[in-house]
């Protein structure tokens, strides 16, 4: 069923926000197609009426009060940023 053509490879790379030069698209498309055809085996399985697995043993997710539990760590949060200025993460201009 599915092979990935050049256009699809280009679109997937765009969606994933990974720059792929045009020259590399054919190889990428071929590799992705290979992996997808490996996945095609899943079509042999009868999944009628099966619910996706959610946990190893029945477990209710813990709840807590919806309140602030942390904060006041601006310097720590910014300490690893490639570009931080005046207490903010700096990025190229987004809005004209």
């Amino acid at each position: 069923m599915s092979t990935i053509d050049l256009e699809t490879a280009r679109r997937v790379a765009k969606l994933a926000r990974i720059a792929v030069p045009d020259d590399n698209l054919p190889q990428l498309a071929e590799e992705l197609s290979g992996i997808l055809s490996f996945m095609e085996q899943l079509n042999e399985v009868d999944i009628e009426g099966i619910e996706p697995m959610t946990s190893v043993t029945p477990m209710r997710l813990k709840r807590r009060q919806d309140g602030v539990t942390d904060g006041g760590q601006q310097a720590k949060i910014l300490s690893n940023a490639p570009d931080a200025r005046e207490g903010f993460f700096a990025v190229p201009k987004v809005v004209e």
Binding site: M39, L42, N43, V45, I47, I50, E51, P52, M53
Partner: peptide, 11 residues
């Protein structure tokens, strides 16, 4: 793909 795989996982 994704939902089918999750159901196979349950099996």
């Amino acid at each position: 793909y994704y939902n089918r795989a999750r159901k196979v996982r349950a099996l």
